[in-house]
């Protein structure tokens, strides 16, 4: 998986170590550690995973395996305004795929990618538990319901100058 090479600052390494310590450096807490670390850094670059593997005393391949298994975890920095399109059953049958295609077309990126200016990223999720609002799109903290592909342009416009 392509990932931007970064060098972690000492302080950042310490932050990761502290998170691991909160979970007693237990390998069984890997998902919680990854969750917390991603909320701190916004994503999980390989350098971060190396520290986590060391701290939890588990293989790097396993950590990478878990990071790539769960769609919530990402190895590329997410955009300032991350767009999550729900592709759960209800959203899917009500046209979520078309909505997703429209986001991809407008932003010229694929799922899992971030626009060059770092503003937007697209992710697809499986069911956010708001099936009554299907199809659902979440941008940052804001939820949009009954979205159609025609709405995509206006949604993006909201964030243009933010």
């Amino acid at each position: 998986m392509a990932t931007t090479e970064i060098v972690l600052k000492e302080k950042q390494v310490q932050q990761i170590k502290d998170i691991c310590k909160q979970f007693n450096n237990e390998s069984g807490e890997l998902i919680n550690v990854l969750h917390k670390t991603q909320s701190l850094f916004g994503y999980l670059p390989s350098e971060v995973q190396v520290v986590i593997a060391q701290e939890l005393n588990m293989s790097l391949a396993k950590v990478f395996g878990v990071v790539t298994f769960y769609s919530y975890f990402t190895m590329t920095p997410r955009g300032e305004h991350p767009i999550d399109v729900c592709m759960g059953t209800a959203c899917y049958v009500r046209g979520a795929e078309k909505v997703l295609e429209e986001f991809k077309r407008q932003l010229k990126i694929e799922v899992g990618e971030t626009t060059l200016d770092g503003k937007f990223s697209i992710n697809s999720l499986r069911c956010v538990g708001a099936c009554g609002l299907a199809p659902v799109v979440i941008v940052g903290d804001k939820t949009y319901g009954a979205v159609t592909s025609a709405d995509v342009k206006n949604i993006l416009k909201e964030y243009e100058n933010k």
Partner: peptide, 15 residues
């Protein structure tokens, strides 16, 4: 380790 999920899952090395 097994990585990815669904059709894309495969046994691989870290990264």
């Amino acid at each position: 380790s097994a990585i990815n999920r669904g059709f894309d899952s495969v046994v691989s090395t870290a990264f």
